[in-house]
Write a protein that binds this DNA or RNA. Structure first.
Length: 420
RNA sequence: GUGGCUGUAGUCAAGCGGUUAAGACACAGGAUUGUGGCUCCUGCACUCGUGGGUUCGAUUCCCAUCAGCCACCCCA
């Protein structure tokens, strides 16, 4: 029990963490270029925030939240996503009083209590951005473009970008009604699952892989068929801007996102390399959310969230190279206590000079120390024994060239520096 | 929440109702004096996820539980 972490959580160990650092570095680079600043919000929030923001009938809120009471009796939840948190922070700190739009990004753990499978964990990590304050379709295109640019720079291939417009609170009910009417006569022909979807969420029927269901839903009204003029115009412009940027996309009229706050543009990026959980990122516009969370005036917003575990999994499947493990510039093999004292002082100075260095702390013999140094792809081994000490030198061995020479102790630092 | 598969050392694993649980990699030590990557030798599971049960006897069979993997739902 105590020797295993909770289900669905992962330790990120040396050897793995380098991948995370690499991706985080990419995130910070690209966000800076696109004009986004980082925002850090709490890991937990009032449960009410997610109920109001994400929607209390969504699966995420209804059955996947880690919710508990703190010792003061407050109802709090570990965040299942961060958009609602950002919206809250925007309102709380009156960021609407700053130059608009506000562009922020976040990286951090999210928590959802769902069964674990390939690419899905209970604690997982998302990188996301939010643009708050503009409803210009060019922002929709910018956000989507940035996501694709991000994947592209990491070297990911064969991704599919699906986009759709789910309309606004005016046109969405119309679509639902039309869809309902369209399917109503053939409910009994649908698979068992879809029969239950019919009343709950008829849009998902369009997604079903069963051939009967596909037959029944063939020609069904799509969300884009039912858009009001304003939403249709918005969507058309988003596509036009994407075309301008040369971003390839698939208009997927069946794309529906599971969080209630989405309006107009919705998109999802799919990779086929990680099992059934093929979505490696998604997002959309949420023009009603920020008001829902208490903004004094209508505030549009749009953003995306990308799953870091899924990105890493996809990169691994595609054999994309990550930076290698820790390497030493210098390893000091010291023999005997007097040599160790000198070695320790040397080590300090070598590190202070900016090199990556270490020395033996296992009491190993010379041979074993050399072996150890070799395992860390060490550039130089510095050998220091009684013999060298009495001569006031150290043997510096270039591990790759398998050549070595004696260097006076006071010149060691200079020698190593020049060796770089 | 539902369903399927799995659980032997750090990793990959063989095994099987019955004396000392293969092997490989990794790790550690060694192969005449103080030198790595190759080779060779040695060491490394009182025990087969955990708890019960069946049995003369279980790592091998059964049940439960926990964990891992996979799928549905949903999502990143």
């Amino acid at each position: 029990m105590l020797t295993a972490g909770p289900k669905g959580t992962n330790d990120i160990l040396p050897g793995e963490i380098e991948k995370w650092h690499y991706i985080e570095q990419h995130i910070r680079n690209i966000c800076t270029q696109y004009g986004f600043s980082e925002i850090r919000t709490p890991i937990f929030e009032h449960t009410e925030l997610f109920k109001r923001g994400v929607g209390d009938t969504t699966d995420v809120v209804e059955k996947e939240m880690y919710t508990f009471q703190d010792k003061g009796g407050r109802d709090v939840s570990l965040r299942p996503e961060q958009t609602a948190c950002v919206a809250r922070a925007y309102v709380e700190h009156k960021l609407y009083a700053q130059p608009q739009p506000v562009k922020v990004f976040y990286i951090g753990p999210m928590f959802r209590y769902a069964n674990v499978q390939a690419g899905r964990y209970r604690q997982f990590h998302q990188f996301g951005i939010e643009v708050l304050g503009s409803k210009d379709p060019v922002v929709d295109a910018e956000v989507i473009t940035m996501a694709m640019d991000f994947y592209g720079r990491l070297g990911l291939r064969d991704l599919e970008l699906h986009i759709n417009s789910v309309g606004c609170p005016q046109c969405r009910p119309l679509h639902r009604q039309k869809l309902h009417d369209f399917l109503a006569g053939n409910v009994d022909k649908l698979c068992k699952q879809c029969q239950s979807r019919f009343s709950r969420n008829p849009m998902r029927i369009l997604d079903c892989k069963e051939s009967e269901c596909q037959d029944v839903s063939h020609g069904a009204p799509t969300t884009t068929d039912c858009l009001c003029d304003e939403c249709a115009d918005h969507f058309a412009k988003v596509k036009k801007f994407l075309d301008q940027a040369g971003i390839k996309y698939i208009v997927n009229n069946r794309l529906v996102r599971g969080l209630d706050y989405y309006t107009n543009t919705a998109f999802e990026i799919m990779a086929s390399d990680i099992g059934a959980q093929s979505s490696i990122g998604g997002g959309g516009r949420y023009d009603g959310l920020i008001e829902q969370v208490g903004a004094p005036q209508p505030t549009p917003g749009i953003g995306f969230a990308l799953g870091i575990e899924r990105i890493i999994a996809t990169m691994e499947r595609q054999n994309i190279e990550f930076p290698g493990p820790l390497k030493y510039d210098v390893f000091i093999a010291a023999l005997g206590e007097p040599a160790r004292e000198t070695a320790f002082k040397l080590l300090y100075n070598i590190r202070a000079a900016g090199l990556t260095a270490d020395m033996d702390v296992m009491g190993r013999g010379l041979k074993a120390q050399m072996k150890y140094a070799n395992k860390f792809a060490t550039r130089f081994a510095l050998i220091l024994g009684d013999e060298e000490l009495s001569k006031g030198v150290a043997v510096i061995r270039d591990m790759k060239a398998a050549a070595q020479e004696e260097v006076p102790l006071e010149k060691v630092l200079e020698y190593l520096r020049n060796g770089q």
